[in-house]
Amino acid sequence: MASSSSSSSTQVKKITLKAADGKHFEVEEPVAMEMETVKSFFVGNEDAMKDMVVPLLNVSSEHMPAILDFYRNHSEFRKRTPPPPAEEVKAFNEAFLENKSDEQLMEMIMAANFLNTKELLNFLTEAAANRIKNKSVEYVRAFFGIENDFTPEEEARIRAENEWAFDGLDED
């Protein structure tokens, strides 16, 4: 990145990100660059880094700390030699999802999609898939906050084709 001779000392450069609701977050440059959306903001514009505030229009400040925490930990996992044991990564991921409501998870998926980070998006979509596996249609509708746009007749027909799917579902 900016190879300016001016001494920014050994301190890691920080980038200011602005969440959708206006809150500012000071983030170490390597962590911020995990997000393709932030990275592309600076492409061909390296000098601007100092004062520029990067607006993240689709990311709520509520989720920023968790998302940044994910980047910090996972980039550390990637760099570490030897690689961390699978259990350690798994433990972090499980802790990350703990206490996250379905709605929060959905919002974070949208955020990860906007931030364009494959690793986080992959992880969160997997988590979403795990939560709707073997669940009833009503549960899935509620989970995604989706309105049923089938007419009653259409739905009856689709369900009639589909009777098997109502056996053996998990308790919601």
Partner: peptide, 26 residues
């Protein structure tokens, strides 16, 4: 994104189930 999540369901029965949720999902 829906494609990504549905692929992760793996089980075709689960994917079919999601098809009843709404028209675009179908």
């Amino acid at each position: 994104l829906l494609h990504v999540i549905f692929h992760k369901l793996e089980n075709p029965s689960d994917i079919y189930q999601c098809g009843i949720v709404c028209d675009s999902w179908k």
